[in-house]
């Protein structure tokens, strides 16, 4: 069975759980106590990933670190529809990669602010927030134009891709780092649409589209 080295409150782990759930894949969660235990820096986990970063996915003999690498792999291997990562469409793949890189930026900014405020990590929260707002500006404007063109998603016209899943977690958790989404209506509409993707799952800090469901 697919095994995920996972931390419940990590947005990067969550994006992998999201896709696994959407694709209906069974997987085993191996909890790595990132906080408060800092077990991602312990020898046992460094043997799995010398970078000490979560998540890591194991599938048969394959061991993959980096959440976006994992999304690329899972979608390419297990999505029969070929829509989450359309390997035959060069332009679209380029676009997806562009937004995966923006999602990396969200990890460095919105997520860093959240770790500083919530878990006392020694990051410059103010600088991280500033960086997050710059990325939110770009994403919100992009989504607004996509809506004008009749599209609900970051890249493909008719179907979400792994770019949506990659950007979603740290956008949705941003308030924990003091990054407000109040001024980003297109982002807010898009996050509501992501929550309605069949197979969508939640994590602590992110609620379903319908409370109590």
């Amino acid at each position: 069975m697919i095994k995920l080295y996972d931390f419940d409150l990590s947005g990067n782990c969550y994006k992998v759980r999201l896709l696994l759930g959407i694709l209906g894949l069974e997987f085993e969660r191996k909890n790595v106590d990132f906080f408060p235990g800092f077990k991602h820096r312990a020898a046992e986990f460094l043997a799995v990933n010398p970078l000490g970063q979560l998540p890591v996915l194991e599938d048969g003999d394959l061991s993959l670190r980096d959440s976006h690498a994992i999304l690329v792999y899972l979608a390419s291997k297990y999505d029969g529809s070929g829509r989450w990562y359309p390997t035959g469409d060069a332009a679209l793949l380029g676009e997806i990669q562009q937004w995966l890189s923006l999602a990396e930026g969200l990890t460095a900014t919105a997520s860093a602010a959240r770790l500083a405020e919530g878990m006392d990590f020694d990051f410059d929260a103010e600088a991280a927030r500033k960086g997050a707002y710059r990325l939110f500006d770009v994403l919100d404007e992009h989504l607004w134009f996509r809506e004008r063109e009749g599209s609900d998603w970051i890249c493909a016209p008719a179907h979400p891709t792994i770019a949506d899943l990659a950007c979603f977690p740290y956008v949705m958790l941003s308030e924990e780092g003091g990054v407000s989404r109040e001024d980003y209506p297109a982002i807010r509409r898009w996050t509501d649409r992501v929550k309605r993707i069949p197979g969508f799952s939640v994590m602590p800090g992110i609620f379903p589209a319908q409370l109590g469901s």
């Binding site: 419940d8 409150l9 906080f35 235990g37 077990k39 602590p204």
Partner: peptide
């Protein structure tokens, strides 16, 4: 201990956005 902590942080993580 890791799992007990996981469970409690899971609960508190759900409270956090409501509180904030």
């Amino acid at each position: 201990d890791d799992f007990i902590s996981y469970f409690q942080l899971h609960i508190f993580g759900q409270d956090k956005p409501i509180l904030e």
